[in-house]
Computed example of a mutant assay.
Amino acid sequence: MKRYPSVPVNAHASDAVAGKHVHKKQFGQHFLHDPGLIRRIVQAIAPKPGERLVEIGPGEGAITLPLLREHGRLTVIELDRDLIPRIQAAARDIGELEVIHADVLTVDFTALAAGANLRLVGNLPYNISSPILFHCLDHAAAITDMHFMLQKEVVDRMAADPGSKVYGRLSVMLQLYCRVEPLLKVPPGAFNPPPKVDSAVVRLTPLPRERRHDADPALVERVVRHAFGQRRKTLSNALHGVANADQIRAAGIDPKERAEQLAPMDFVAIAKVVAEDA
Results as ranks from 00 to 15, higher is better:
residue 101 H to F: 07
residue 69 R to H: 03
residue 267 F to N: 03
residue 8 P to K: 09
residue 105 L to Q: 08
residue 57 G to A: 04
residue 10 N to S: 14
residue 206 P to M: 09
residue 123 N to E: 03
residue 196 K to C: 10
residue 236 S to N: 12
residue 94 I to V: 15
residue 26 Q to M: 14
residue 226 H to D: 02
residue 208 P to N: 12
residue 107 V to H: 01
residue 89 A to Y: 13
residue 159 A to T: 04
residue 24 K to D: 05
residue 186 V to Q: 05
residue 162 P to L: 10
residue 71 H to K: 11
residue 2 K to I: 11
residue 17 V to E: 12
residue 265 M to K: 08
residue 261 Q to A: 15
residue 226 H to P: 00
residue 65 L to R: 08
residue 64 T to P: 06
residue 223 V to E: 05
residue 192 N to Y: 15
residue 251 A to G: 09
residue 114 A to M: 02
residue 228 F to I: 10
residue 111 A to F: 06
residue 256 K to H: 12
residue 13 A to H: 14
residue 91 A to P: 12
residue 67 L to C: 01
residue 194 P to N: 11
residue 25 K to Q: 09
residue 68 L to P: 06
residue 21 H to S: 05
residue 103 D to H: 04
residue 210 E to V: 09
residue 65 L to H: 11
residue 188 P to R: 13
residue 177 Y to F: 13
residue 220 V to R: 14
residue 166 V to Y: 01
residue 130 S to G: 00
residue 218 A to W: 05
residue 138 D to Y: 02
residue 178 C to V: 10
residue 97 L to K: 12
residue 13 A to V: 11
residue 13 A to D: 14
residue 202 V to F: 11
residue 275 A to C: 02
residue 156 D to H: 12
residue 103 D to N: 14
residue 159 A to G: 01
residue 38 I to H: 05
residue 260 E to M: 04
residue 192 N to W: 12
residue 172 V to A: 08
